[in-house]
């Protein structure tokens, strides 16, 4: 070996080169590919960072319209005082809430009668379960029943029991409208409005019974309370603040899940029109209807959620409308 070559082998640069060749030589294909990938990744990151910087600059200068993440907006916690569950309703355990709900739902089912169509109930329960999974109480096992009545009503008993009439289902023309209707009911359950009503009625009991835990109440007291809560629901004792809070929460749920944000608004409008067609006059609570619509519009505008047209009307026609009984002829 010539002295020059021997010297070259001694220099660190050559050693480093040899080490590099050794490293590459160990796994020629994989190493080269991963290196290329990493270089590509780094360059892509740099490009995307530059794009983000340019977008932000454009937005700040006013050249670009800022993109609004309205789904994230819909996940932000609400701050209005009416949007929180009443504190007295929070003192009930889930088992108690569920037991109260069962009794109230059985009472309502006794008044109107249940319409037995398993596929229809299953479809509605799936919508409600999906909405509940995206709500503040994802653990809530919602179940939806159909009441044999042509009235346009929906009832929500504590613990996730929702009962909707055939008349109310007839009005909905798409799944987003159905989802809006169910989302409002689920929001009432989540905000524990009916449970708060139960608690208010319980405070009217005699002193001794008032402090007894719900599951240890005397049967006649419990039965009376459940019956009166059902009557409160039938009378629609919700305050305007409760309705407003539930409507706002329902709009959030629809946006989170990807339904048309104006589903509930569309449903209410159609229900109002149907009322006018049937009775020739505006509904007696037309003013509250107008206020509700304005509140819903305001919430959609607040979230900056654009109309997406995701109505799923075909599925609702197949699984809901087609399964309803023929309407009774009006005299």
């Amino acid at each position: 070996m010539s002295p020059r070559l021997r010297h070259a082998f001694r220099t660190p640069a050559t050693l480093a080169l040899l080490a590099a060749l050794f490293l590459i030589g160990c796994q020629p294909k994989e190493t080269a590919r991963s290196m290329l990938n990493d270089v590509g990744t780094l360059s892509k990151d740099a490009i995307s960072a530059t794009e983000r910087l340019a977008t932000k600059t454009g937005e700040s200068v006013g050249l670009l319209k800022p993109q609004v993440d309205y789904v994230a907006n819909a996940w932000k916690p609400r701050v209005s005082p009416g949007d929180a569950p009443p504190p007295e309703a929070l003192s009930y355990s889930f088992a108690e809430e569920r037991e109260i709900g069962r009794a109230v739902a059985a009472d309502l089912a006794g008044r109107y009668g249940l319409y037995n169509d398993e596929k229809l109930a299953r479809y509605l329960t799936r919508i409600a379960a999906a909405l509940a999974a995206f709500s503040e109480r994802p653990e809530l096992p919602v179940c939806v029943g159909v009441l044999s009545s042509e009235d346009v009503r929906i009832f929500e008993a504590p613990g996730g029991y929702v009962l909707v009439t055939i008349g109310a289902l007839r009005i909905a023309e798409s799944e987003s409208e159905l989802a809006g209707l169910l989302a409002a009911a689920i929001s009432h359950v989540n905000l524990r409005h009916a449970l708060a009503a139960f608690d208010r009625l319980r405070k009217e009991l005699p002193e001794g019974a008032r402090k007894t835990p719900v599951l240890e109440l005397a049967d006649e007291n419990f039965s009376a309370l459940a019956g009166r809560t059902a009557s409160w629901l039938v009378k629609d004792g919700h305050t305007p603040e409760q309705v407003r809070a539930a409507d706002r929460a329902a709009t959030d749920l629809q946006v989170r899940l990807g339904y048309e944000p104006g589903g509930l608004r569309a449903y209410l409008t159609r229900a109002n029109l149907r009322q006018k067609e049937r009775h020739g006059t505006q509904a007696p609570d037309y003013e509250s209807f107008k206020t509700r619509c304005a509140d819903l519009d305001a919430r959609v505008a607040e979230l900056q959620a654009p109309a997406n047209g995701h109505n799923l009307s075909v599925r609702s026609r197949r699984d809901c409308t087609a399964r309803l009984p023929a309407p009774r002829s009006t005299p």
């Binding site: 739902a105 059985a106 009472d107 029943g145 049967d219 039965s223």
Partner: peptide, 22 residues
């Protein structure tokens, strides 16, 4: 409690329990 309430009011709780299975 719900069962006894339903019994007292002569209601059928079975329908609601069926809904839970769905």
């Amino acid at each position: 409690k719900a069962a006894r309430h339903a019994e007292a009011r002569k209601l059928k709780l079975a329908g609601i329990l069926d809904l839970e299975q769905l």
